Amino acid sequence: MIPIRSNQPNNPNQPTPNPTDKQHMTTYQVEQDAELLAFLLETFQPQQSRSAIKRMLTHKQVYIDGAPVTQHNHPLKKGQTIGIINQKRAKQKTVLRQTNIPVLYEDDAILVIDKPAGMLTIAADDPKADTAYKQLTEYVKVQDRNNRIYIVHRLDRDTSGVMVFAKTPEVKEALQTNWQQSVTDRQYTAVVIGQVAKPQDTITSWLSQNKAMQIYSTPYDNGGKHAVTHYKLIQQNKQYSLLEVDLETGRKNQIRVHMQSIGHPVVGDSKYGGKDNALKRLGLHATTLAFAHPVTQQPLSFTSKVPKAFLNLTK
């Protein structure tokens, strides 16, 4: 959404939401009788689309004289005060009400989330499985039952962090076709077993998949996919190291396989040598994703905090 500018200061004589909401609210004065949706359309178009404006109501961003209103045809009277809670604050409320997945950003083209560990991106076999795709599909259909979302990329079930979904097939195709060119920063945080000797390094190899569907790394070109991983040591103790990992290429299981190849598998990664399960999850988190917006081409960057368990284990 495009940021909203307030036409006038908040009216201290009107009842208001709780103090936290008030800090995130801008206000407008009703100058003539009208219906609420018509007022919002006149105020915010063409900077915002009709569907984006309707989402303000769905997400309970709109207050009239301090009370939340969701009805499109709610009558307005001259002199009333319209308060709009900004999108970030509204998304925090929506997450609690509609989904277990924090929404970092949303507009008409994309939806960016902070995926929890232990959640599949999409079910491979069971259509009833509780996945990010299923929850987010239900989330967007609250706004309009015809809405859909589309998978752009995936995170492993036990990897948490930043993911982006498309809202139309055209946006999905645009993102996937230009993914390598559009993504300017793709950073992960990893907890690996043992003390990494080098404070920073680059791992280069070729990744192939065997008949058991397991990825393996070779230092020479054997016809596999070229993969480049950069890492920097953040902190470590005698048992574990916390790494900041930047992907130059994005291959399947790239970080997990590369960490195994240098003798420091990711904690909790039994598939690739990380039998230590001190975190009770995979020690991999998608911390930052920066890319060009598929429609506007404006640079976007999203960050998810490093899990506290990662920091505590490597102190």
Results as ranks from 00 to 15, higher is better:
H293M: 02
P17G: 05
Q297A: 14
D65R: 07
V140L: 09
P219A: 05
K88D: 13
Y216Q: 04
F165G: 12
D158T: 04
L243C: 13
L289T: 00
V266C: 01
A278V: 03
T168R: 03
S241V: 08
I82E: 01
H72V: 07
G274P: 02
Q176N: 10
N253S: 02
A90L: 07
T288D: 02
T159P: 08
D130P: 04
D185F: 08
P169T: 02
Q87G: 08
T70L: 10
S217D: 14
L313H: 05
T70R: 13
L155H: 00
V69I: 15
K60H: 12
H72S: 13
K93R: 13
P17S: 02
R157T: 07
P102Y: 00
E31K: 11
A212P: 04
R154N: 03
D246A: 10
L284F: 06
R157Y: 05
D144P: 06
I122W: 03
G66P: 01
V30M: 02
Q260V: 09
I262V: 12
L243P: 06
T168K: 01
D21F: 01
V196R: 09
A197W: 01
S208I: 01
A90F: 13
I203Y: 05
I234W: 12
P102H: 07
H293S: 01
T303R: 15
V266W: 08
G263A: 01
E31C: 13
Q71F: 12
L136M: 11
L313M: 06
A109E: 09
Y150N: 07
Y272S: 00
Y220W: 11
T287W: 15
L284R: 07
I4T: 03
T27L: 11
L207F: 03
D276S: 05
H285T: 04
K232Q: 15
V306R: 07
Q297T: 12
L155N: 04
S160Q: 15
Q45V: 06
N18G: 05
N178C: 08
T229L: 09
K252D: 11
D201M: 11
R186H: 14
Q71V: 10
K280A: 08
Y139G: 04
T249D: 03
